[in-house]
Design a protein around this nucleic acid. Structure first.
Lengths: 181, 181
DNA sequence: GTCAGATTGTTCAAGCTTGAACCCCTGGGA
DNA sequence: TCCCAGGGGTTCAAGCTTGAACAATCTGAC
């Protein structure tokens, strides 16, 4: 029935194995589990749905769109890569790769920051600007279709509260320190 | 300030370009945009945060965990791949690749379905079962930390409503038909 | 009975992401 | 002045996902 009940209902069985657990964990209640499974499903499917629309109509991934859109709003349509990366909460490595591809397509240009040569700035070209302007209506329509339309104002309000809460929890979490395998 | 304001606030500028638009789109209100940007940030960061915990502690991706967990709850710890794929809303291609890797690690076994040779079933091994049981507490703790704890019961309720709504909208959307570039 | 078409699952190439290694530049001691 | 620690950015290899192509099996219509 629910495609994501896979995630945690294992718990009922796992409880019989409490011998192997360090401390008895605080399992999710049914109420909490339903919400989490629904959110998990959203988390997996919404990005690909939005990607699909942008790829089909504008040959852009959602992340490409965020990069171009971020530049389009910056003064002079220009930003340092490090600022853009923290703006987008992504690694500099990922941004560098994406920016290189977008530059090859003529949508932006890279240049050393004239104010300090150790930075690199990216500037949206006219072609890049026109592409974002052309892509925006379809993207907004998809966001409305999948997310916004059909919700009440108060649901939208709670959605914002919850999403901000999650974002904050993640940003405050101790940095995940990978353990050698 | 808000790392994802990049997404749609372009709109204010794009409106001055209405000449290039087919019909005047219904832009998002500030209220809607705040909620969408917060959700977008969640959508990008929550999967990697949960991945990081599972990879660090159990050398599993979140998707691996869902696959193993799905099997662990099925009768006989066995499911057809096509059922599992629709259960997880993923492509058969992706599932086939993941299952092959999990089989190589000894966490599950593949076999032709005895009831109908055109299906393939996957069965969790004891090692796979033990890994899921060992991984569950840490995973649940991460879900609590990032999502559930700190929300009120009514916020959790609305979260479920909203996420179900989005999931439904996506599943009802006309299948994205890729356009040749 | 047979053929067209749908379904199941695998594989392959192409593209993207990640993390580590690396280089360059800067700034701050000693 | 010299050294070095740290931040910014790129690159590379490894791993994962996607979509198309393919093989095998089943279904249904004629």
């Amino acid at each position: 029935m629910n495609p994501w009940e896979t995630s945690l209902t294992l718990i009922d069985q796992a409880e019989t194995y409490s011998c192997v657990m360090p401390d008895e964990p605080r399992w999710l209640t049914d109420h909490e589990r339903d919400a989490w499974l629904a959110l998990a499903k959203l988390m997996f499917n919404l990005p690909s749905a939005l990607d699909a629309q942008l790829l089909r109509d504008n040959h852009l991934t959602l992340f490409d769109y965020f990069v171009l859109s971020g530049l389009s709003m910056a003064p002079g349509r220009t930003m340092r890569l490090s600022d853009l990366a923290s703006h987008l909460s992504c690694s500099l490595s990922r941004l560098s790769n994406v920016v290189k591809r977008l530059e090859q397509r003529g949508l932006l240009r890279r240049a050393p920051d004239p104010e300090s040569p150790r930075y690199t700035v990216a500037t949206l070209t006219d072609a890049g600007w026109e592409l974002v302007v052309a892509a925006a209506p379809g993207h907004v329509a998809a966001v409305r279709q999948y997310v916004i339309d059909g919700l009440t104002a108060s649901q939208i309000d709670v959605l914002r509260e919850v999403a901000c809460h999650v974002a904050q929890q993640i940003s405050e979490a101790p940095e995940a320190s990978p353990r050698p395998r």
